[in-house]
């Protein structure tokens, strides 16, 4: 791989790791590991841990996938590796 391609790949890995950290935090963190303590906080009628497990994590997943796609398209252009 030439230097540009290597730099592109590194930037990609950094982005993926960042997104997956958030992915882990909202589902496994807030939805499972810290769900019990979070349940003492309320979001309307929802205990917060329960909300993350059955609602919030899904909204987060959707946002993450679009943020990833948007950032990757920017990286493609920055490194000149986009299609066409």
């Amino acid at each position: 791989m030439n230097n540009d391609a290597q730099a592109y790949w590194k930037a990609n890995i950094r982005l993926v790791l960042g997104c997956l950290a958030v992915w882990f935090f909202i589902s496994y963190g807030c939805g499972i590991l810290f769900a019990a303590p979070l349940n003492s906080i309320r979001l309307g009628g929802y205990p917060l841990g329960f909300w993350f497990a059955q609602q919030g994590s899904i909204y987060g997943f959707v946002a993450l996938v679009f943020i990833y796609a948007w950032r990757m398209n920017q990286l493609d252009k920055k490194f000149g590796v986009q299609e066409d």
């Binding site: 997104c19 589902s27 329960f50 497990a53 059955q54 899904i58 993450l64 996938v65």
Partner: peptide, 15 residues
């Protein structure tokens, strides 16, 4: 709450 396994499991895989 325990069924959250399915709710998160069958969506989070798309990430």
């Amino acid at each position: 709450y325990d069924a959250s396994v399915f709710v998160m499991g069958w969506t989070g895989g798309y990430c």
